[in-house]
Design a protein around this nucleic acid. Structure first.
Length: 198
DNA sequence: AGCACGATTAACT
DNA sequence: GTTAATCGTGCTC
């Protein structure tokens, strides 16, 4: 697509502090390969969920069947079902044993516009992938990807390095949707997004 | 076994 | 701004 070779992001990258990974994933490219066709998008919004002490993080409940993935290998996909209808995609971070992940909240469609249009065409184009439940719908990501290795192309889902985004183009704020989460967790500035581009 | 609720979305007033 | 849709998960009984 562009001049940058499609370089997949390594496990060492995900093994770093979650806030660092959340910030640096902005500009990276989320890729879904399905039947030989690539559908992808530039990551434009992320949120960090960090450990059992973070009361906004599912890991606050400790190890359960659902959260076990977050305690596992960095670079794994943690996918959960919310509000009875939406799949949420996260990338597991930090060292194995420490439960944390980055929620991918939005992307800007890059490749596979045709297939994305089939799945999201009922909505206006700017709304195709501007929410966590929307991008999983657009790229056909569901429960079957829970636990897959994002550092490998085997599963058909991975993340590639992209343009790096400078600080002046990034907005940082409180995470979204944590309505009943107590302070200070509710207001932690752990949401990162790229300022409006053209 | 039953229950309340959620890291949301789309449609509607 | 308000609300229905819709069900897995973790907690209580």
């Amino acid at each position: 697509m562009n001049s940058v070779v499609n370089k997949i992001i390594s496990r060492e990258y995900y093994a770093r502090p979650t806030l660092t990974v959340a910030r640096e994933l902005l500009g990276a490219v989320l890729v879904r390969l399905e039947n030989g066709v690539r559908a992808s998008g530039i990551i434009t919004e992320t949120e960090a969920y960090v450990g059992e002490s973070d009361l906004g993080c599912h890991a606050k409940a400790g190890i359960t069947p659902r959260t076990a993935i977050m305690y596992g290998m960095p670079g794994s996909a943690y996918i959960y079902f919310n509000y009875g209808m939406h799949w949420m995609l996260n990338a597991v971070t930090e060292k194995e044993g420490f439960p944390a992940a980055v929620l991918i909240r939005a992307i800007q469609p890059l490749e596979g516009l045709e297939i994305i249009a089939v799945r999201r065409g009922r909505q206006l184009k700017p709304k195709w992938t501007d929410g966590p439940g929307k991008l999983t719908q657009a790229l056909n990501i569901n429960k079957s990807f829970n636990g897959v290795d994002l550092c490998s192309r085997e599963s058909g889902l991975w993340i590639e390095a992209g343009e790096s985004i400078s600080d002046e183009n990034v907005t940082i704020g409180a995470r979204v949707g944590l309505n009943s989460v107590p302070e200070p967790w509710k207001s932690m500035p752990w949401r990162f997004f790229i300022k409006t581009r053209e």
